[in-house]
Design a protein around this nucleic acid. Structure first.
Lengths: 345, 345
DNA sequence: TTAAAATAAGCAAACGTTTGCGTAACTTTT
DNA sequence: AAAAGTTACGCAAACGTTTGCTTATTTTAA
């Protein structure tokens, strides 16, 4: 019978049992006899029965769907996070539906409406760049739908977070550049209204201060979108300074690669003339020449952690929604772009 | 009232109307007076009503969920396809849920069960490498759930497909290598039981034949997983041949990059000694030096096309399920890795 | 041997919508 | 002025499960 779906009603009729018995049998409920249970399972297999989770969700008033909001899926970092989310969600019996905000607040708001309409069990989100006010997420607190932010998080909202210590990571990168002898370290920053990028700038400043190096505003250039092109643009600007930098810390790997290409075109040596470091450990950082020193932000791990955290909150919903924050450990990965002979003091 | 959700029943009570009237009003059904409709909408906004799509889906016996099965989300090609799928799905009012098969048949089968349980409206899938027999997809034909394969497709199943013309693309790449003067062109192939990779090999052979160049089995090396490492391994093998190749066509960009790195390490010049071309136009192909000549497979476009095709089939379900095949146009992108002075005949 | 307890299964409502059909009240036609 | 048509809405069933409560039967305890 093509087009028709076999339901527990059909099973009930065929076996002269009530639908409730069938339902309980299929859940291996002990109040149904072992023999009956076995026969129900057998017939279910035979008839190709598949439970209808839509009906089940309606009755149970909850789905097993996790909604994920990312700025863009085709950005390496996010696709790795999603991969991690899917991995644990699958193992825990949850489904994952994804939405791209394209860094637009308007779209992010629309997506939250869709998620509410779809009765998702929980939400994992990375805020759009445009988003300052998170009011549109507040509704989930009322509906007791757990919410976990990752990477770009909201501070004015009661919600769990999975982040890396951007300040610390930036500090360590900068300290590393100092350790190999850099005296004039420039920074290509991201959009500073975003906390992660301002934290990276702060970490950079702190490392300079700790080592008694002066901070020079001219040595910081803000890239609007963290692309190759912006990295190249900023680098050209930095190379025109009367006192050229001898080290460069970029807020992500893309800008770092744009920087490397410009530096090489200017016949400067990396790392001898300028040492370069990035942030994120994208696959491309091993391909560029010289290979790029960077921070591994462990995106996959971040996704897995966020999913685990969310699912735990979903399943403990009745007890309490304690919002928690997990900081993922990052690794400094040193490659040729900063591999100099250490300076002798 | 936190935790409680307002339903059309609530609206009905508050307005002394029946639920059917509310439902119709919210769908702007003309059989409801304009004034009433306006008031219903007003109260709905005021009370923060959100439709419950789970209930709606159950009643309508269809969801607006598109299931996507990819080998891995964090592979550039697939994340771009997904991005395209999400883009058109969002605009057409569909949701996207994603699953990774990890190229495992077992997992792919399990995922199809989940999709059936979840009553997805349609499915977009790229077959797992392990998958030879597509019996587990047959159930969707019975249930009249449209199915669109992309990239790696099944030939023994009635289903729609979005593909590129791998034969043609490979032919054009090879012809290009011949045009710039290559006489001994090697090929790093993918798993030849997969149709796209055998098609690429065939296109390569056809171009050789057309130009009266001999085909030499030793000049073909199969990479098991299309990674950098496999590309490097194959290249080392090819460089040991008594008659070294002067051109190399790789089945994807990753192997091409592995190849370039090995060739450079052997102090051979690209493209003068060996010209190299890849396949897929991954972002990294512009970063490697020399920049890689490759085929742009237009993954984003592929995703959009697959989604459009699927949604059309979903919405025309009653009329007929004509399975169709769309071939996406590919572009040969010439970069420095094959930029030689053209030979003078 | 009878009461109490355990076992196995059924009844029916509920989850929140959608929709075919029915029916008032009102308007238009002949 | 009666018949026909239109407008605006209600009734109730249905979608496929889940689950609290009840009931019939069997087993155990006293």
């Amino acid at each position: 019978m093509p087009g028709t779906r076999v339901t527990i009603k059909d099973l009930a009729k065929r076996m002269n049992l009530s639908v409730s018995t069938i339902s309980r049998a299929l859940h291996n409920n002990p109040s149904i006899g072992a023999e009956t249970t076995a026969e129900v399972w057998k017939l279910a297999k035979q008839l190709g029965y598949f439970p209808n989770s839509v009906a089940s969700n309606l009755r149970r008033r909850k789905t097993n769907m996790i909604g994920v909001i990312v700025p863009r899926i085709d950005i390496t970092f996010h696709s790795h996070v999603i991969s991690g989310v899917e991995e644990v969600a699958y193992k825990m019996g949850y489904n994952v539906t994804i939405y791209q905000s394209h860094d637009s607040l308007e779209r992010e708001v629309a997506i939250t409406s869709i998620l509410q309409t779809n009765m998702v069990a929980g939400i994992i989100a990375c805020l759009a760049l445009e988003t300052q006010d998170c009011g549109h997420f507040a509704r989930f607190n009322n509906q007791k739908v757990p919410l976990v932010f990752y990477d770009r998080v909201s501070n004015d909202l009661e919600a769990s977070k999975v982040i890396i210590d951007d300040f610390d990571a930036a500090f360590r990168v900068t300290q590393h550049l100092i350790n190999i002898g850099c005296k004039r370290i420039a920074h290509i920053a991201g959009c500073l209204t975003t906390s992660i990028f301002s934290a990276r700038l702060d970490g950079y400043k702190a490392a300079l201060a700790k080592n008694n190096l002066p901070f020079d505003q001219n040595m910081v250039c803000c890239a609007s979108d963290l692309s190759y092109e912006e990295g190249a643009r900023c680098t050209k600007k930095l190379l025109k300074l009367t006192e050229m930098p001898d080290g460069l810390f970029c807020a992500n790997d893309y800008t770092a690669i744009g920087a490397i290409q410009v530096i090489k075109k200017n016949n400067l040596r990396i790392p001898e003339d300028i040492a370069v470091a990035g942030f994120s450990n994208y696959p491309v950082s091993t391909i560029i020449e010289p290979a790029l020193t960077t921070i591994d932000d462990r995106a996959f791990e971040m996704g897995k952690t966020a999913a685990r955290m969310l699912i735990r909150q979903v399943e403990e919903r009745d007890t309490n929604i304690a919002s928690e924050t997990i900081v993922i450990r990052t690794d400094l990965i040193v490659r040729d772009s900063t591999r100099r002979q250490p300076v002798q003091p």
